[in-house]
């Protein structure tokens, strides 16, 4: 039996740093070492969310027409989501090797469940009378989908997108297990150093918050009728 050995990096410098404290001066001096991991984190998150959204949205539209597809797709995406991210990164390594590919495959598979479920429930929740009225006015099935059903499902779709995005920011912090870097790497390397954890962790939370607000803003722009009050 063996206890996991944690490596605490030895830093030279004043007492604050050697005692692993929270040191504003150290943060000021070393901030640039977080810039690359940060942008890598942004890249992983945005790419995974965009790819995952496109795939899950397409699947949901397909399942909207062919209902029998819903159980297999939702069960598969649920099982994928149920695999711990660290394990999934490692399980993919023998097949796809270290790097962005492995990380993105795993991250994309985690976004599927949120987007698929929310698009499906959103499309299902469109009021029957709106659909009936649209058909009655002579819209084709495609026109009905894009002009009535999808717009009315937008709030649900956006809700799913927001959940997928904040979740992906968190999971990308573990992408270094797949050799894809990100803000998790500096945290992992020096987990006992308060300054390090504060900066890298803070950037993660900030990224999640900014992306979430951006999507919320986009939603407001795209669904003006939701703000209409009598």
């Amino acid at each position: 039996m063996l206890l996991a050995q944690i490596q605490f990096e030895q830093r030279k410098g004043d007492t604050c740093e050697s005692e692993n404290g929270f040191c504003p001066s150290w943060i000021g001096d070393n901030f640039e070492r977080y810039v690359d991991p940060f942008w890598q984190h942004v890249f992983l998150t945005v790419t995974a969310v965009v790819l995952g959204f496109v795939i899950a949205f397409a699947l949901a539209l397909l399942a909207h027409r062919k209902r029998w597809l819903i159980p297999p797709i939702s069960v598969t995406s649920q099982v994928l989501y149920g695999i711990p991210s660290v394990a999934l990164f490692l399980l993919l390594l023998p097949a796809t090797g270290r790097g962005n590919t492995t990380a993105l495959i795993a991250l994309v598979s985690y976004t599927l469940v949120f987007v698929f479920v929310n698009v499906s429930t959103g499309l299902d929740g469109v009021p029957e009378d709106s659909i009936d009225a649209a058909r009655g006015m002579g819209l084709t099935e495609n026109q009905l989908l894009w002009r009535v059903e999808v717009p009315l499902a937008l709030p649900e779709i956006f809700a799913g997108l927001r959940i997928a995005t904040t979740t992906t920011v968190g999971l990308a912090a573990l992408a270094f297990f797949a050799g894809a870097g990100g803000l998790g790497e500096p945290i992992y390397r020096d987990i006992g150093f308060k300054s390090n954890v504060a900066v890298a962790g803070g950037l993660c939370v900030l990224l999640a918050a900014v992306l979430d607000l951006a999507i919320l803003h986009a939603q407001r722009m795209l669904t003006p009728w939701r703000r209409a009050t009598p």
Partner: peptide, 19 residues
């Protein structure tokens, strides 16, 4: 809760409360 990555949460506890 979702906006705080699990690694960050764990790291904050380790860094500030110890192992």
């Amino acid at each position: 809760g979702r906006a705080i990555p699990t690694l960050v949460l764990l790291a904050v506890f380790v860094a500030y409360l110890g192992i």
